[in-house]
Structures are given as structure tokens and as C-alpha cells.
Design a protein around this nucleic acid. Sequence first.
RNA 1: CGGGAUGUGGCUCAGCUUGGUAGAGCGCUUGACUGGGGGUCAAGAGGUCGUGGGUUCAAAUCCCGCCAUCCCGACCA
Length: 489
Amino acid sequence: MSDDKKLTPRATDFSAWYNEVVLRAELADYSPVRGCMVIRPDGYGIWERMQRALDDMFKATGHRNAYFPLFIPESFLTKEAEHVEGFAPELAIVTHGGGKALEEPLVVRPTSETVIYAMFAKWVQSHRDLPLLINQWANVVRWEMRTRLFLRTLEFLWQEGHTAHATHDEAEEETRRMLGVYRTFMEGWMAMPVVTGQKSESEKFAGALRTFSCEAMMQDNKALQAGTSHNLGQNFAKAFDLKFQTESGGTDYAWNTSWGVSTRLIGGLIMTHGDDVGVRIPPRLAPTEVVIVPIWRADEEKTRVLETANQIRTDLENRQRGTEGRVRVHLDARENMKPGAKYYEWEMRGVPVRMELGPRDLTNQQAVLVRRDTKEKTPVAFAELGVAVERLLDVIQQDMLNTAKERREQNSLRGNITYEKFREVMAGEGAFVYAGWCGGDACEAQIKEETKATIRVLPDEEFRSPEAPTHCLRCGQPATTEAVWAKAY
RNA sequence: CGGGAUGUGGCUCAGCUUGGUAGAGCGCUUGACUGGGGGUCAAGAGGUCGUGGGUUCAAAUCCCGCCAUCCCGACCA
């Protein structure tokens, strides 16, 4: 950074921009332990709003929260063969406690399928105990080699839903339902459009029958897996003896699902909406929606301006806004900073609306509203402020989604594409490429090897191309399915 | 774990080649003026130079070890 007040532009170095923005907007900081992070109040505030929105949706779909332990007996992990294999390299294992070597090492949970289904096995006897719909908010640990703030850290916060059902179809329905909840949240709250679909065999969760995911496009045209939902089949039920008595009197293993999103979403939010001035937070997730910046010269002006500013804040806070609750307003009355410096600071932090209020405005009985997303300034009469602010927040929320969606579509390629062209795109600016796939592991592996691009999803119907691709991108054989290819985080 | 780089006030870094008084900008504190897009001036506070050893009359500087961080590769939400 030559000018240490400005961020490295996204176009110059996207990952340098990302790191700077996270640190400068005070969302997170590095911890004393390599690969771990501290989530600072402004970052955690976003997470809290995410939690609230998601938790409400989980409850509305019949789930209840519970909490399972951080420590898992090592032997539990080894009970489901594929599952162990998937996680073994990234486990943190506790071997000592109370000054003595433990008889059996304890794994710090990388995910909780094993403990949870072991417990489910105790709780479920009859089909009348099903479905069992549980969610937990927790931290998990995966010993990653390379880490990045929010996107991949050794420890992260997430939510993991775990359910048990009487039939495969019910489990499948649940898996899809929760994928839909995620999509609703990502688009409606995060203003982050996603492509949903099924993961290929090689990309699915270790131990699952099928994995579905929401994939979002970041501003460097790379894909971020933003949420996953797994149909676990009876794999874990068999490993943990999770059986129930059926209506007809027989016994059967239960069918499980699990689904999760993590603090990684915050990284996705930043990389979807951030600009060269800082982060941009969509109103529904912004801990502060409106910041009032008062302007004054003489003391006499200061008194009048602050008095009015306080009044406006109170008025806004007291408005009834349905499910959205109170308008979250902050009055920045710091005396040691000039208004301009405050503007830059709040833009860096991503507050969606700034209200400027000075002596001239008092005279005109108005305030100036400034949108963080477009920088557009509009004077609004005091009498209409409340309505105008609410409407503006809604418009910003909607516009941010539309803008992100347009960007994604502009950077998506459909239709017949030669492998040569594909390699060129992946080596250059990147894209979501919708192309045919023969379904073969070999082609998938070769493409990954040659271009670093992977199958993000086999897209759900609404995302598929109007004309289905006919040939495999790599081998030219008839395509069995359409796949979305991209480089991924 | 392989390749590359870097460790010096809170932050970004200069100083190291050629050993000899520890520096700058930003930030911070106090005060005054200032205030509609990153203010000015004045006075201050703040550093075992990553760490351990070695060479030397003398080490931020030269040599060796270790540690940490960052970037690039093999693994991944």
C-alpha cells in the first residue's frame, strides 16, 4: 500500500484487498495461534444477525437446538469408514488430561455426526420418535494447512443440523428443504445469489449418500461453497446402531441428514459485496443500518445539530417495522474527527446508510441520506425521514442482490465451449462454466489436474441451460448431465 | 512437508552492503485553532531491534541454530 489510507484495489490483488478489508473494517484479527482468528465485535455482530435469521428459520421448520460435547472418543470417528478417511488428516487430538495420558484419545470435533447419532440411538426406539430434528450452534476444528480469515481457519463457528427419519424419501425431502432454507437466507438476507445443486461423487461429504450445496460467485469469479446439506442415508445409523421399530412391527435403521453453514459466510459476504472503499453490508445483516454524522462549526451550532440528531435517532428507533424490529441507528458524535474522516470510516465498515446533518440542513428542515452501495446522496425533509430511511434500506437490500446476480450472470458461460477455450478462461479471469459431463471420474480428475477447476454442482433444474449440453467438456462423449465448473475457495 | 521472502515503537517501513548516539511516516496522549469528503500547529508518551548462541573493545548490522509470520505448491467448509 503506497497510500496507507487506501485499500489495495480489488483489480490489483484480490486476496490482498480481502485481507486488508477484513483487518481494516475490524471484522477480525489474527490470533496468537497460527491459523486461528479472533472475530471482533463488528464481525461477530454480523454473525449474530446471521444466527438469528437462520435460527428462526430452523425453528419454523420444526428443529430444536441442543448441544453436544466438543470432545469425541477417537473410536467413534473410525466407526464409519468413509467418514474417518475423509477427516483423518485434519483432526486435532487430545492425548492428555489432568496431567495424565488418556486411555483413549479424544478428537476435537471436526463435525458431530458420530456423537450425535450415538446419542440418537439411545433416544429413538419407535417410529413414533421420528422424525428427530436437532440443530446445534458450535465451534469445530479442522487442522487445515493453509488458512485465510473467515474462509478457512483451524477453528470456526457454525451450525450443524442433524435429523433422523423413518424413510429415505423423508430424509431426502429434509435435505432439500434445508438447502432451500439456506438459499432463502443467502439471497434474502446476505443478498448473495447462489446456484444450488448436487455435488459429484468426488466432492460429496465423506459418509454421505448425496451432498447438495449452495455455490456463490465471488468478485474474482471463484466459487465459494456457502452451505451444504447431506442425505446421509443409513450409513451412520448402521455404524451407531440407530434403529427403530416400524409401524408394521419390524426394525429398520433410521435415515439421517446433516446440514451446515459457518462463519465462512462472512467471508462470502465480503467477497460478494465489498468494493475498493471497504466492506458493504446488506441492511438486514448490518449491526448498524444507519449512521448519523453531525456537522457543526461553532458551539452554538453543535448544540442545535446534536439535539436534532438525537431526536432523529430516537424517532427512527421507535418506528415499528414489522419483523425487522427497530431501525439500528448510531449517532457518531465524536468531536475529534472531522465529518469527512467519519465518512471514510463508516464506508470502510460498510454501514448501508449514512445520514449527514448540519446547520444548513436544520435551516432547510432536512437531512442528507447517502447510500453506501451507490454513494448516491438524497436530501429528505424531516417529516419524511422515517419512511424514506425504511424504504431506502429495502431498496439497498434488493439492489445489492440484483447487482450481485447480474455480475454472476455476466461471468457465467453457457452453451458449447471447447476445452481449449475453457482452459483459457480458467487460466484467465475465471467463470462459472455450464458444460456437459460424461459422468466419468477420469474426466473430472483430469480437468481438475489441468485447470484447477472443479465441478461445483450438478445444477438444479432452474439453473440449467435452456438447451442441455450434449457432449462432455473433456472427452467429447455424450453428456449424461450438465455441470457447473469453476475454481473454488 | 518442499521452494521463496520477512521479523526494528500500536501499524507500515528505513537503517544492515562498509559494526560505533535507534530513526521516519501514520496512529496514540494533551492543548489550541478547525469542522458539508481523510485538518493545522505546539508539546509529549512509546522500542530487551523475533529468539538462543558465536565473532569483536563494540552487534539492529557479520556467522550459526531455533521460532514465528506471509507468499507459492501437495490437503480442504
